[in-house]
Design a protein around this nucleic acid. Structure first.
Lengths: 246, 246
DNA sequence: ATAGTTAACGTAATTAGTACGTTAATAAAA
DNA sequence: TTTTATTAACGTACTAATTACGTTAACTAT
């Protein structure tokens, strides 16, 4: 059964990834319109999102958008802000594109935005390619379609704030990671340097950070111990640990 | 010119007030429907809100709702969450009421929620009465129409989190207040006691808390100095002071 | 072997936070 | 006029957390 879109409401997702060096966001190509689609198919970039269906839960819409791109359906989502100015869609092409997608006359779209943290290794390149999606460094997310520059900027602010308040960003790391991986993540997100020895002392207090007996391999220096994240202990402890972390 | 409503979108406001003892929220009566409106006119309670107009900014809608009830138009608003489950309007009467208000067929309403802090003395009793609005203690906000119980609960959580992260709740106090007024506010919102002497030391570090030469009057004990809040200094300092306060 | 690189442990000094005691100023009661 | 009740306002010793460092260990590449 085909579901009908609500022409006034959409859901957009800012998906964050971390490749051990940089914080990235996932963007997809907004197809160029037929008329201007002359030579190549590479269009303007946007963040993943679509109009809401009439009977659809907001979280379900966001999850389905993520699942299509990443394949994983159990990724925690954070609703962070609504963008709904009557004039937020400034470019006539953006509007035409929306109408071509939905076959509906579109006047104004209020979009409910979510962000999620993605293990960058979970996203298969083939799936990304087939959706013409790719990771770009957050500071290169400029000139996106609609008001998506602003949406990405605000999502980043919320992520920063959340990370300062509670240490939960393990989802951006691979399953096994070194303490220095973790520190690099904190430094990149918060744009702030930490003393390695003090960071280590502080982070090791977290009961849900588990030391394994695995070691880093293929490095040309002393290999570090690998750690992993115990989600069950995290669920138990996040309430107490949630405020005032770093 | 009459503006048309968007039948799928509304804005609701949780307005917090503080009467030196209790944290309160402003509620209005949802008119009983004609049929059941037999004896008296006191209806079910709801928080203030309405459908969005087609060309209206979200913040403007929220501001207009507040201005109508409080009269003051420059109150900072915080967008905190969207409530948009397809089945969030459970009571048939709530739906009928919406349709009677808007003369539109309503299927599903996604509501964008804001909260604001109100000096309780700014709200004129006459204005409140004419809108059949009143302040009720937050823990008595039960059995409200729609899913407004949940909305109030969530708004309160956000307020708590915000107050823990940054000390900005001066808008809940009268212009001149004692340090004990301020402490009582913190204790009520955070549901936590503070040592009077330590609270005083900590709060006096805030550069935007200004000592005046006025004194408390009409108290049968040693009168306290009155303080006020310097908004300009607050704007300058909030960035640095914003995290990790109490 | 030696140099280069990052891992991992430790400690003194500083700063912030907590738990208290004491005196001061006012109104009302005795 | 003294006493009592009540809250204001100041101060200080103790404890916990944070910061700023030094040092040694384990690995690779030359």
């Amino acid at each position: 059964m085909e579901q009908a879109y609500i022409p006034h409401l959409s859901v957009d997702c800012v998906l964050f990834g971390f490749d051990e060096k940089q914080l990235k966001v996932l963007v997809v190509e907004r197809d160029r319109l037929q008329e201007e689609d002359a030579k190549y198919h590479s269009g303007l970039l946007k963040i993943p999102g679509r109009l809401l269906f009439e009977e659809e839960y907001l979280e379900d819409a966001a999850s389905s958008i993520i699942e299509e791109l990443i394949g994983n359906e159990s990724i925690p989502l954070q609703q962070f802000q609504v963008f709904g100015n009557p004039n937020r869609i400034k470019s006539p092409n953006d509007l035409l594109w929306l109408e071509s997608q939905t076959k509906l006359p579109i006047k104004r779209v209020v979009t409910i935005c979510f962000y999620a943290l993605i293990k960058i290794t979970d996203a298969l390149t083939s799936t990304l390619n087939s959706h013409r999606a790719k990771w770009i460094p957050i500071n290169e997310a400029r000139g996106l379609a609609f008001d998506h520059d602003e949406i990405v900027r605000e999502a980043y602010q919320h992520l920063k704030k959340e990370l300062t308040a509670s240490p939960l960003e393990f989802n951006l790391l691979p399953t096994y990671f070194t303490l220095n991986n973790l520190q690099a993540l904190y430094e990149v997100i918060l744009d702030q340097q930490f003393d390695n020895r003090n960071f280590r002392k502080k982070i090791l207090k977290l009961p849900y950070l588990i030391e394994t007996n695995k070691m880093e391999t293929n490095v040309n220096h002393r290999p570090a111990k690998l750690y992993c994240f115990n989600e069950e202990l995290y669920q138990k402890n996040k309430r107490e640990m949630s405020l005032f972390f770093l």
